[in-house]
Simulated scan of single mutants.
Amino acid sequence: MKKIITVFFLSAAVAVQAQVKVLDHAIITTKTTIVSPEGADDNIAPPPPAAEGGEVRVMRFGGDGETKSVTTFKGGMIKTYTETDMSRTTVLRDNNKKMTTTLMEMMGKKTGFYTTDEDQQQMAKRMDSMMQSRSQTAASFNNGNQVSSTDIAYADETKKVAGINCKKAFIIATRKNGTKDSSVVWYATDFKLQGITSTGGMAGGFGNFGRTTALSGLDNLAGFPMQYEMKMNRGRKMIVEVTKINTEKEVADKEFEIPKDFEVKSMKDMQNGNGGPVFQTRIGGPGQ
């Protein structure tokens, strides 16, 4: 019986997938809310010392509270704009060139950096190595907590999100340590976005790099995720909800141009402190 049910789910997903349109342009407004349990430890470890004459800036994404972002895309170009009380961040993603450019307006300064997918992979490896060197116990816990596989179960429940009819699904994650947990997703059944798995969440200032904390399995969903919740470490919870989507308005090419008043450098140069600050990244809020 178990095998028959599994085949049914797969067949249903394939049938739905065949009817989904892939849109090549849209403007999406998304709200991301991160909530910590009462009494959570908000202590932040001090950043490492900078090289002589250098400067260290801690870039933290995913702190408690509500963040709104606007994602504009056309073909292989994607722009995500996020504004907080202290900063404005624009992430420009070129899927064709596999390059991400991040522009930041902070404390009156307009700076930016660009990085390739290959650079991001190398950065991720270095961060993993640093985490393992900090504590073998913590490294063992983190490795066991990683998602090894996901399954999707579709439900008959429906509701409207941002005026769009959505259906309910459960994404069931199996971790390397054998534990399982599920997340509720409400998804639009009749469209997906070209080159975009989801909006909002932890895209933060690093484009794809920030997606390391996105909900696993969204790319296999039979439609576009309009609302979902996911568990984070230290008992926190992230709620992502699309509040507005416009698929009719034409998107001009100039939307993806880099303003001339931004000083943009390679991420490698900025990490090495060559003519710029050393960046320490913390994704996921305090204590990361």
Rank of each mutant, 00 (worst) to 15 (best):
V264H: 00
N233M: 12
I258E: 09
M230R: 15
E241A: 00
A252N: 04
V251G: 06
I239H: 15
P225V: 05
T243W: 02
K244M: 09
M230S: 13
P259E: 08
Q227V: 08
Q227A: 13
F256P: 00
N233I: 03
V251M: 03
I239S: 15
T247D: 03
K237Y: 09
E255T: 11
E263N: 10
M267R: 10
D261C: 05
E241V: 02
P225L: 03
R234N: 14
I245L: 04
M232N: 10
D261V: 04
R236L: 11
M267T: 04
F262S: 08
K254L: 02
R236K: 15
K249F: 01
M226K: 09
A222S: 07
K237T: 15
M267W: 13
D261H: 07
K244N: 14
K237I: 15
E255Q: 10
E263K: 11
D269I: 03
E241S: 04
M230E: 12
K237P: 07
S266R: 01
T247I: 10
I245N: 05
E250K: 15
G235I: 14
K237Q: 13
N246D: 15
F262C: 08
S266M: 00
I239F: 14
K231H: 10
F262T: 06
G223P: 06
M267F: 15
V264E: 00
F224T: 10
D253H: 07
I258M: 10
E250N: 14
K260I: 02
M238S: 08
S266F: 01
K249I: 07
A222L: 00
P259N: 11
K237W: 09
E229V: 07
I239K: 14
D261G: 08
K254Y: 03
E229H: 10
T243M: 04
